[in-house]
Write a protein that binds this DNA or RNA. Structure first.
Lengths: 144, 144
DNA sequence: GTAATATCACTCACCTACTTAGCAATGAAC
DNA sequence: GTTCATTGCTAAGTAGGTGAGTGATATTAC
């Protein structure tokens, strides 16, 4: 936290949360024997299949790096490549059950905790929390 | 977010915040011409000088890597090494004005936004937000 | 006081995972 | 049919990490 800004308990809590949020993917990846890029790739692919170039954009890397990430995930049986139905240039990368499970079982404790936390909020509290979270996101975007 | 868990607006907002929080150091580092490890080193050193091994622990890297990080920051004029007053094995790494400014001026918009957000909370709201943030942190720790 | 052990900070060799540049195949626009 | 754009890859090079080892220094045990 910067000098000149009053350090409040909410700002301290936010700092701790964002520090943990940065560490978590590294730790989950380490447990799963993956790099953080591989883990993030699996997280994106859990939502829907995507092509390597789309995956590159989602991960913020080049298409060359994306090819390598997909190669390594294929080698582990976590994803598979398929030809695109309509566009001969493209491939589609789909997560396998192995890949999906690798992510889910490690993140399940977090999801359960977050769901319980969320369910404990009443409507008014939820509104306050959401406004704060969106405000914090906007504040961070202003430095980007 | 995992299937089976109800996706609420607060969980969506939290997801967006944690994604941004992960991207922000990369973007700040890129703007400053630093690696993310170098940026995090500067953030730690803004609080107090520390030795390379302490810095290694704080950053989660080996002492070899820490030496390299310090080397590169010295080369940029962002830190300096000094001999330790009492322990001949140790050095102390101190941030310079250049290094401090490099971090602060890029993060100032975020700090200002977060301070404004914080100041807009009344006591009851603050209690709700802090409880939520600490709960979210605990949920993430449970997956580590 | 001396020896054994531990710690600090570094160097070196090696490795991983990225980038840049370039290419072949394919699709879009004309 | 030609030109331009996109996809996805390979090859070469780079950045930044680790593990192992080293010398200097401090601490502990005797």
């Amino acid at each position: 936290m910067a000098p000149g800004y009053q350090r409040s308990s909410t700002l301290a809590a936010l700092q701790e949360l964002t520090d943990i949020a940065t560490l978590l993917p590294h730790e989950i990846a380490r447990q799963a024997g993956l790099s953080t890029s591989e883990l993030h790739a699996l997280r994106h692919l859990m939502r829907a299949p995507m092509g390597p170039v789309d995956l590159a954009r989602a991960l913020g890397v080049t298409s060359a790096a994306s090819s390598g990430i997909v190669d390594r995930l294929v080698a582990r049986g976590h994803v598979e490549r398929r030809a695109h139905a309509a566009d001969g240039r493209r491939t589609e990368v789909l997560i396998t059950d192995s890949g999906r499970l690798e992510v889910l079982r490690r993140m399940a404790p977090m999801f359960a905790g977050l769901a319980a936390l969320d369910n404990a909020l009443d409507d008014r509290e939820r509104e306050v929390v959401e406004r704060y979270l969106r405000g914090a996101t906007a504040a961070m975007r202003s430095a980007m």
